[in-house]
Structures are given as C-alpha cells and as structure tokens.
Computed example of a mutant assay.
Amino acid sequence: MEETIYNFWHLHDPKLPVNILLAGISYCDKNYCIERHGDNLYSFEYIMDGSGVLEIESQTFYPQKNDVYILTKNSHHKYYSSEENPWVKIWVVFNGDFAEDLFHRFLPADTYMVKDCNILSYMNEIIHIASDKQKNYAALTDEISVILLKIILHLRNHLENKVLSVPEQIKLCLDINIENAIEMNDISLQLGYSKNYIIKLFREYYGVTPYTYFRNRKIELAKQYLLNTHLNIYEISAKLSFADQHYFSGCFKSVVGISPSEYRRNHRGQNTE
C-alpha cells in the first residue's frame, strides 16, 4: 500500500467557511479498509483504477474506475478495496459551513456515488495546490473551495443527465463558462442556430436575455467570492473574466445596488454584530 497524503488537520480554523483537512492519492492493496462513525467531514474520492465497496448509511455501493464516491457529514461508513483489483484513487477531505451549504443546495440528499463521472482534472488541481509548500493555509482553502464548487456543479449536471431543450442547452453553455468570456456567436456556432434565434428562444423560455442571465450569474458567483474568500476586487474581476475591475464594479453595482467593496464590508459588519 502506497499513499501520498497532504495533512492540514493541525491548521483547522473554525472561522473559515471551508477547511481542507486532507488530500492525497492512494494505491490501495487488499488490506485497505477505512471505517468512521459520525465524523464532521465531507470527502470526494475519485477512482482512477480498480474496484471496491462502499457501505454508507445502510446502503452498499461498488465504486470502480471513473466513479466518484462521496462521504458526507455525520455519516456512518466503511469502504475497502477488492482483493483482485484494488483501488487507485485520488481524494480530498474537507468540512465547514460553506461546504455543508453547497451539498444542501446542489446535490440531492443521500447522494453517495456518481457513476462514470470524470473529475480527474479537478482532483489533480487540488493535489497540485495542496502540494505547494509556499502557499499559506488561508490561500490554499480559498483556491480549493472554488474547485470544490466546480466539482459539485459537475456532479449535479451529471446526475441531471437528460435530453435538454435548446434553451436549456444555451443555459448549460453559459453555466459551464461562468468564469470565462463567451459570446453569443460562440454558442451559435456550437449549437448550430443563428444568434438571433438563440436570443429569442432563451428570452421566451427564461424571461431574460442570455446576456442578462450570464451577467447575473457572474455577479452571484462574485458574491460568493466576496463572502467566502480572501480574493481582492481585482482578482475576482479577473477570475470572472470581466474586461477590467472598473467594469466589474459597475456591473456589480447595477445588479446589487452597492459596490463589491461595500457588499463585502456590510456582510462582515453583520457577522460581527
């Protein structure tokens, strides 16, 4: 049995919205077995190879290559590799109020395994951040929190796999590219419809133009960065692909009614009352 483990338990800070506790890669053997009862943690574990068993809350699952299994707060669980084909898996363990909120908002209750859902690029990014010895813990949690959100959205979209209408396909394109700059011409080429037709369908279905929806979704994500990370206004603007900080602040104020800095300051003031 070989493992690469990055341990942050000793840096746990109850004031942070998310705490990263452990991350690593496990090359399991036939003796690999973990059992917990009611611990305050969440975990994503992606199976790169092999097979095994997850017993959680009186249910049994058989995670294998390209599956994700999920450990949830206060759950009673036991998981172990098969003897013939033991797991190779990459994983992250975390907790915190923001983590709990993400699970409640985006994943169906009692979601413990997602079949055939490749999140390896996200998990590799987490390991890369966790291995950076120059990074302080607050910065590490900020960066990994964003990736955890992306994983949860990816899992949700995978679970909701269905035949989408054209407006829903447009919305999915916008949601997937929420941190990028995307034009209606890009979506038009991707879906094979004219730009005007896409705008018309989307407005009829959702009651707003694609531009307004995309801008508002970016502002909602900006709020989460303001409330749950240490990123400054310029960094948030760049991360969400706004043309510049001034344009981002103008968009934010037009939607929310106050500037990003006022929004962050007001929230912190409420938290200290």
Rank of each mutant, 00 (worst) to 15 (best):
P108R: 05
K200C: 02
I20E: 04
T229Q: 09
K135I: 08
Y62R: 12
R36F: 09
N85T: 13
I170L: 02
S254T: 11
V68I: 13
I47S: 07
Y42T: 04
W9C: 00
F252Y: 05
K253Q: 09
W87H: 09
A139R: 15
E179D: 10
L191E: 01
T209C: 07
F242A: 02
L227G: 06
D175Q: 13
I20W: 04
E160W: 08
N161G: 14
S249H: 03
N19R: 05
G50C: 04
A243G: 00
M113P: 04
N31H: 14
D97F: 04
N85Y: 12
L231F: 15
L189V: 12
N157T: 08
Q134A: 07
P108Q: 05
S249R: 10
S254G: 03
Q169T: 03
T72H: 09
L71P: 11
H76V: 00
N31F: 13
I258L: 01
M184R: 14
D39E: 11
Y211G: 03
K135C: 06
R217D: 12
F94H: 09
A130L: 01
D142L: 00
T111S: 15
S237F: 10
E262S: 05
N95L: 00
S261P: 02
L155E: 01
K200H: 08
Q190F: 09
A23F: 10
A139M: 15
R217P: 09
Q224H: 10
E179Q: 15
N95V: 00
Y211W: 13
G50F: 03
L164F: 12
L164I: 06
N40V: 06
Y263D: 10
D244S: 00
S194Q: 05
L54M: 03
Y79M: 00
S82G: 06
T141Q: 05
Y112F: 15
F214S: 08
E2L: 01
E143L: 04
K89F: 15
L54W: 01
R36T: 07
G269A: 11
Y79V: 02
K223I: 04
Y6K: 14
L21V: 08
Y225G: 13
D142P: 01
K253M: 04
S58D: 13
I182A: 14
L22G: 10
E125M: 08
H154F: 06
K150N: 12
E143P: 00
N66E: 07
L71N: 09
Q245W: 02
F252R: 02
D110M: 12
L159A: 07
Y122N: 14
L107N: 06
P260L: 06
V166N: 12
I25C: 06
E160Q: 12
E160F: 10
E183K: 15
M123D: 03
G52H: 05
K253T: 04
E55R: 02
Y46W: 14
H104L: 10
D13Y: 02
N232Q: 07
